[in-house]
Design a protein around this nucleic acid. Structure first.
Lengths: 160, 160
DNA sequence: TTGACTTAGTCTTATTTCAAGACCTACTTG
DNA sequence: CAAGTAGGTCTTGAAATAAGACTAAGTCAA
């Protein structure tokens, strides 16, 4: 399968990966969550090739994850901001960061901490069930076909 | 910057991306969370080139995300299972799936639902603060340098 | 009013990675 | 003994990436 065909799969993960699944997208978004907004700042902080960055930002804008906003009229200059849809990727990024903290932080500890303004503490993210509020263990989750499933699509895979 | 140098960055996300940041890793892991374990099953379900799959599985095994376990001695056959470290990526995957469900499900709804065995309900994942238990809004989070930060690394970026 | 600087890109070239599918090896089953 | 199964490797051409030079439009200071 080619990468461009991924969004035609009937799978929410595949469709999400078609938008943010390339090598750089999540790193670009990490910077966006750290309030980086301008082309040269993304480029310098990530060390990404400029051509690739330009294409990636365009792609994220086209998919509504970022928006390109003029912050100066004369001269005309644009910056990139997270949309609501983009903000919705925060759980993905913070989960990856905390996974990295857990397994790859050096002796001294993680390079970056996150403080929850509401309660004032540094936190780790905890994934919980929207229905009962308990922390989620993957072994406690049973996937099963939903309303958008195609006939026979999950046969022999998920009904257990 | 080259992709292989990413894990030398002092950033937990960059280090995580060095392990699971290529185009296929998270899709392979999605299948693993759906109890797929064998080479040919991964290959058929993902439509990934066999050479790329072999390399990717090897990489994930080397990084301790999957383990290669013999499930038959005669003939000798191996399968790939999630390790504890691999299970730790569940929040990343389920968050991406729910983001995809939210923004890319068709009219009929998501193709796959997830039932929490503990409470018996289909759920969405909710990211909460480990300290106060409230749902996390990215606008309520203030990143700041941690013990593993390098001197001056975050100057002008995160202290707000 | 020229020369240095800023911002947001585009373009070129060499290298790396990926897609598709044929092929290989060891064993099993009919 | 022939066909099938499982888990790969190999080859070829196409696509994506890395690095950095270059461009365009405007600003600022002398």
């Amino acid at each position: 399968m080619k990468w461009q065909e991924l969004d035609r799969e009937n799978c929410s993960l595949a469709r999400a990966m078609a938008v943010v699944g390339d090598r750089w997208a999540l790193l670009v978004l990490r910077e966006a969550f750290l309030r980086v907004r301008r082309f040269d700042d993304f480029q310098e902080r990530l060390g990404i090739a400029r051509r690739v960055l330009a294409e990636r930002l365009k792609h994220l804008v086209e998919h509504g994850v970022l928006e390109r906003v003029a912050y100066s009229q004369v001269p005309l200059r644009y910056e990139y901001r997270l949309t609501e849809k983009g903000l919705g990727l925060y759980p993905v990024i913070i989960s990856l960061v905390h996974w990295g903290d857990t397994h790859y932080a050096g002796k001294k500890g993680p390079p970056l901490l996150h403080r929850h303004k509401a309660c004032g503490h540094d936190f780790r993210s905890v994934l919980t069930c929207s229905e009962c509020g308990e922390a989620l263990d993957p072994r406690e989750v049973m996937p099963h076909p939903g309303p958008g499933a195609r006939k026979g699509e999950w046969d022999g895979r998920v009904t257990e």
